[in-house]
Simulated scan of single mutants.
Amino acid sequence: MTEPQNTEPDNAGPPQDGNVPPYQQQPAFQPGQPQALSPRDERTWSLLAHIGTIVLGFIAPLIVLLVQGEKSPMVRAHSVESLNFQITVTIGYVVSSILMVVLIGFVTFFVIWAAALVFAILATIAASKGLPYKYPFALRLVK
């Protein structure tokens, strides 16, 4: 017994009548070109650059900058701003640690921690709304 032969190819391309499905209408990925992010993705990555600092410190905005910074000016601006603030906070922690010898460091450490937490939350709220945010004090080391 012979099996019936299938006359249609397994991987038929777009229909010949010109009706191309929407997923095939998108431009192909080009290796040298970063793909643009949707507005929703921009807001998500931007807020991750700020809220991630509560757990990961300066590592969170650095990761966001390296992974998504080239794809969106908004994500780059938020991650650079957050990274600069976290570098400033880290310097403050080091100075506070040194000042713990004379006991004032315990107070400054807590003040820096509280300010970093409050400003990270405010920046996250602004980023979730798609608005720019500038920390009130930060060394602008990363451009």
Rank of each mutant, 00 (worst) to 15 (best):
T124R: 00
V94S: 11
P22G: 05
Q24S: 01
V111M: 12
Q33D: 13
T53N: 07
L131T: 11
Y135C: 07
I91H: 03
S79A: 06
H50A: 12
T88Q: 08
L99Q: 02
L139N: 06
A138L: 07
R76I: 12
G69P: 05
A116W: 09
L56V: 09
L66W: 13
L122F: 14
N11Y: 14
G13S: 12
P73I: 05
S96Y: 08
I98W: 08
S96T: 07
F109V: 15
S82R: 01
A77M: 09
L66Y: 11
E70V: 03
E3M: 11
P34R: 10
N11M: 11
L48D: 06
M1G: 13
L117N: 05
T2P: 15
S82F: 07
L65S: 00
A28W: 12
L99M: 09
A126R: 06
G52S: 06
V20H: 08
V118L: 14
I125C: 05
S79M: 02
N11D: 14
L62G: 13
P39F: 04
Q35Y: 13
L65H: 02
V64R: 02
V111F: 04
L37I: 08
H78S: 05
T88N: 04
F137Q: 00
P4V: 09
V111P: 01
A115S: 06
I104K: 03
A138I: 02
D41K: 10
S72G: 10
K129S: 05
G92M: 15
I87D: 01
E3V: 07
Q33C: 00
G13H: 13
V55P: 01
F106R: 02
G18A: 03
L47S: 00
P21K: 00
P136W: 11
T53W: 06
E3K: 09
I87S: 01
F119R: 00
W45A: 06
F109D: 15
D10S: 00
I59L: 13
A114T: 06
V89W: 13
S97A: 13
T108F: 14
E81Y: 03
G52K: 05
F110G: 10
Y135N: 10
A49W: 07
N84P: 01
I91A: 05
S128Q: 09
A115E: 06
V111I: 14
G52Y: 09
V75Y: 12
T44H: 11
F137V: 10
I51H: 07
F110L: 15
A138G: 03
V67T: 07
L83G: 03
P34E: 11
E70T: 08
V107N: 13
Q68F: 14
H78K: 04
